[in-house]
């Protein structure tokens, strides 16, 4: 028995392609659908058949890719972050106000903004753990409060400030034919996957999400872990706010709003369980790409807005049904005593 390779005995995560597919069925399914959809878009619009379009999809997806990481981590530990919209706006407004067009203040402004959003994220975590306020309500409240503060700070309008040149260049310039942001994305995804799936910290998050009570008893610092998960979400929002400002050149107070529901949708479509403890970031990235390609396709076809919305809703529901079916198939094998679907207890440590 000792002859088996390490990876094989670990359940074959690295056990070639077959092993990967076996242990990540949902993720693979998401990518298959995404690729199929991409092929469809190529047929719908011949002008999509070039490198540039692929890069465009990545640039458009980049915001959601980053914000969904935070959302996914929070969902992993049985939370939900409804404050991402406000935090993105906050970051954008602050960075534009402090840095303005030049790059002078960038060295202190960017870290400071990231620090602020991370801190607000951690406040969410503190409310959800120490004060025992359900994350849904906690983040809803901080979302409303932060937005209110931004409104007061800007007196209703982010007049001041353009995007710093650095951020502009980050989002729109190319290096060697590839947009700079794509390099950043690759780096981000790499680090994110390492943190979520290969680090001790990530493992602990999974354990916490799978069974908070057991995690507590096993000596994990549940509160600390949850707070850092929310902190990561805040950090990601800070990044996205800056990216958006770089992309559009000026902040608006509503620029974060679309990312609340779509980040949750991306995480869920990507095969994570909204009840926590399950899912991985690559799946989420697949979910984001799926949604982005879908919206590209819909725009290309030029459907009426009503139909676009309907199709988006339908895709979410269908993705859910698909992942629930594939999950059920794997579950039947392991089901022993669970009576139908039992909802795990929420954090009651």
């Amino acid at each position: 028995m000792k002859n088996n390779s390490v990876d094989e005995r670990f359940g074959g995560r690295n056990d070639g392609v077959a092993g990967f597919i076996k242990s990540n069925k949902v993720t693979v399914a998401v990518y298959i659908v995404t690729i199929l959809l991409y092929v469809v878009t190529l047929f719908v619009s011949p002008s999509f058949r070039n490198w540039h379009h692929l890069m465009l999809v990545l640039v458009l997806a980049s915001f959601l890719i980053v914000v969904s990481y935070g959302q996914g981590i929070v969902i992993l530990v049985r939370g939900l972050d409804l404050s991402v919209g406000s935090m993105i706006t906050l970051s954008g407004v602050l960075v534009a106000a402090w840095v303005s067009q030049s790059n002078e203040n960038i060295l202190w402004a960017i870290p400071l903004v990231l620090l602020i959003t991370t801190f607000i994220g951690m406040l969410n975590g503190i409310g959800a753990t120490l004060l025992r306020i359900p994350p849904f309500v906690m983040t809803l409240s901080t979302g409303i409060i932060v937005f209110s503060v931004v409104l007061g700070f800007t007196e209703g309008s982010p007049h001041k400030g353009n995007a710093p040149r650095f951020l502009n260049g980050m989002m729109l310039d190319h290096t060697a034919g590839i947009p700079n942001i794509v390099y950043f994305l690759i780096l981000f995804i790499f680090v994110a996957v390492i943190v979520q799936s290969y680090s001790a910290f990530g493992r602990k998050l999974y354990a916490l999400g799978a069974n908070p009570k057991a995690a507590h008893i096993s000596g994990l610092r549940n509160n600390l872990l949850t707070i850092s998960a929310f902190g990561i979400s805040g950090f990601c929002c800070g990044l996205v706010g800056m990216m958006l400002v770089g992309y559009t050149d000026a902040p608006t107070l509503t620029m974060g709003d679309p990312y609340v529901m779509s980040s949750i949708a991306a995480v869920v479509v990507g095969g994570s369980s909204i009840l926590g403890g399950k899912g991985n970031y690559l799946g989420t990235v697949g979910g984001v790409l799926l949604l982005t390609i879908l919206s590209t396709l819909i725009t290309a076809i030029g459907l009426a807005e009503g139909w676009r919305t309907i199709i988006q809703g339908a895709i979410i529901v269908m993705a859910l049904i698909m992942s629930s079916v594939s999950e059920r198939n794997t579950k039947i094998a392991s089901a022993q005593k669970n009576i139908s679907k039992s909802v795990p207890e929420t954090q009651k440590v």
């Binding site: 529901m261 949750i264 949708a265 869920v268 909204i274 919305t309 309907i310 988006q312 809703g313 339908a314 979410i316 529901v317 859910l320």
Partner: peptide, 9 residues
């Protein structure tokens, strides 16, 4: 997630 879908619909 399901109601998010129907809401959009």
């Amino acid at each position: 997630a399901a109601t998010l879908g129907t809401s959009i619909l």
